[in-house]
Amino acid sequence: MHDVLALCAEASTTLSPWLSVWEAAEHSVADQHLATAAAHWEYDLLGDELPWRAMKNADALVSELGSWLVRYAPPRLLAQDASDSLLHRIRLIGLTGPARWTDPHWPNHRY
């Protein structure tokens, strides 16, 4: 699913309508795909990078995807029994600057 989202975002140069569709899909399969995507995306988003190669608007897409994930994903991930470490990394995406890097749950990634 996350690969399809990247394809749609690149083709349309926007994420908003695709994220809205995913958000509206209240089904366990959509939540399973969200858990897979979040685990795939978190490393790049913690480094303020887009988890795919963008042709245009990469900074705006990073910001939008990160904000959406922080706002939307936690309750759905909890329903999928996501690990505490994944939930902390999603929370960290919403922090900026020293608040992110000095948080006790920072995974010590090197970018």
Score class of each variant (00 low, 15 high):
28 S>V: 09
17 P>D: 03
31 D>I: 08
18 W>K: 06
47 G>C: 13
45 L>K: 02
34 L>E: 12
43 Y>L: 14
17 P>N: 02
2 H>R: 11
45 L>P: 10
55 M>S: 04
10 E>L: 05
37 A>L: 01
66 G>L: 05
7 L>F: 13
19 L>K: 04
8 C>T: 03
42 E>S: 14
10 E>D: 02
51 P>M: 14
28 S>G: 08
64 E>W: 00
54 A>V: 07
65 L>T: 01
14 T>Y: 01
54 A>Y: 09
13 T>E: 05
26 E>S: 10
29 V>P: 03
37 A>Q: 06
4 V>A: 04
13 T>M: 09
30 A>F: 06
18 W>G: 03
52 W>D: 06
27 H>I: 13
2 H>P: 05
48 D>G: 13
28 S>F: 15
60 A>P: 00
50 L>C: 14
36 T>L: 13
26 E>G: 06
61 L>P: 00
11 A>K: 00
26 E>V: 10
48 D>P: 10
39 A>H: 11
39 A>M: 11
26 E>A: 03
2 H>G: 12
30 A>C: 03
64 E>D: 03
15 L>T: 00
7 L>R: 14
46 L>Q: 11
7 L>E: 14
65 L>K: 03
21 V>W: 10
9 A>N: 11
32 Q>M: 04
19 L>F: 04
21 V>L: 13
47 G>A: 12
17 P>E: 04
12 S>Q: 03
16 S>K: 12
30 A>H: 07
15 L>Q: 00
67 S>C: 06
18 W>S: 04
40 H>Y: 11
55 M>R: 14
18 W>Q: 01
37 A>F: 02
46 L>A: 01
12 S>H: 00
37 A>G: 05
53 R>T: 13
26 E>L: 15
6 A>M: 15
54 A>C: 14
67 S>A: 07
10 E>R: 10
21 V>A: 07
47 G>S: 09
27 H>R: 12
16 S>L: 10
47 G>T: 10
48 D>K: 07
66 G>I: 03
21 V>R: 12
58 A>W: 05
68 W>D: 02
44 D>Q: 02
26 E>M: 13
67 S>G: 01
23 E>T: 15
50 L>A: 05
51 P>G: 12
38 A>M: 05
10 E>P: 02
45 L>W: 01
49 E>A: 09
50 L>H: 11
44 D>V: 04
59 D>G: 12
29 V>H: 09
59 D>R: 15
35 A>I: 11
60 A>V: 01
51 P>N: 15
51 P>C: 13
66 G>A: 09
44 D>W: 00
4 V>E: 04
38 A>K: 08
38 A>S: 15
13 T>W: 11
47 G>L: 14
7 L>K: 14
51 P>V: 13
50 L>M: 11
6 A>H: 05
25 A>N: 10
